[in-house]
Simulated assay, not measured.
Amino acid sequence: MSYYNSKPSGAPQSAEALAGELNKCVELQETMKAVNAYWRKAGTCVGAPGITEAQAKRLDEKIATTRYSWEKQPFSTYDLTNNNSKIKSLESKVKEAGKGFEGWEFHGGRAEANTEINRLQLFFDERPGEKQRAVLKANGFKWAPSQDAWQRQLTDNAIYSAGRIDFIEPSDGRSVRDHQPKAPARDDGAR
């Protein structure tokens, strides 16, 4: 049973991946609480819900061999607290990911915010000219043959870079930034 995800917290994830990780953490929290409650009643982890017999024996051994009197339970308070903090963080990330970036139409193509692979993708009706390709590369976009698109990681910086490229300006007259969700209002009094 893995207690923590090994993926770096700064690595971008899609909304679906974040929701999956959140579900795993919530299930883990419930399992840890249930195992602790079972241990308080039975004095052993063997037979506890949500864990295998081998895991239960390892937890019993851990409790028996610990030298700290305050850790006399299968999952310590800090395990529960740390996992609960991770749940709160993931809930906030899922909420943010739900706002989502939006795509737009431009003369000669369209831009899409592909949240599934976390990329801002530019699809052109015809192959861009050499100068346009140089501008795309200078702004961090790379050609992805597998996607048949010019793309870069979907971040605020990608949106700002796209806003500086004149030939992909939205055809509806709005700016690239106007097509994106608004950042939450900042409270200048709080620091």
Rank of each mutant, 00 (worst) to 15 (best):
P8E: 09
S9H: 09
S14C: 09
S14E: 13
S14T: 04
S14I: 02
A15K: 13
E21P: 00
K24F: 00
V26I: 13
L28V: 00
Q29M: 01
Q29T: 03
M32L: 09
K33C: 14
A34Y: 06
A34M: 07
N36G: 12
A37L: 05
R40A: 14
K41Q: 14
T44C: 03
V46Q: 15
A48Y: 03
A48K: 06
G50E: 11
T52M: 11
E53Q: 06
Q55R: 10
K57E: 12
K57L: 13
L59T: 01
D60R: 03
D60A: 05
E61R: 06
K62S: 14
K62A: 15
A64R: 10
A64E: 10
Y68K: 12
S76K: 07
S76G: 13
Y78N: 14
Y78D: 15
D79P: 00
L80T: 02
N82R: 02
N83K: 07
N84G: 09
K86A: 01
K88E: 15
L90P: 07
E91P: 01
K93F: 04
V94G: 05
E96R: 10
A97W: 05
G98I: 02
K99S: 10
K99A: 10
G100A: 12
G103L: 11
F106G: 14
H107Q: 14
G108L: 11
R110A: 04
A111S: 09
E112Y: 02
E112S: 08
E112M: 08
N114F: 06
T115M: 12
Q121L: 12
L122P: 04
F123Y: 15
F124P: 05
R127V: 12
K131S: 08
R133I: 15
A134P: 01
L136I: 04
L136V: 05
L136T: 05
G140D: 03
W143D: 15
W143L: 15
S146Y: 02
S146K: 06
D148S: 15
W150P: 09
Q151W: 03
R152L: 14
L154P: 11
D156Q: 09
N157G: 11
I159A: 10
Y160D: 15
S161Q: 12
G163K: 02
D166R: 09
I168V: 12
I168W: 04
E169F: 07
E169P: 00
S171I: 04
G173E: 01
R174W: 03
R174H: 10
D178T: 01
D178Q: 14
Q180E: 01
P181M: 09
P184T: 02
A185N: 08
R186D: 13
R186C: 03
A190S: 08
R191E: 15
R191S: 05
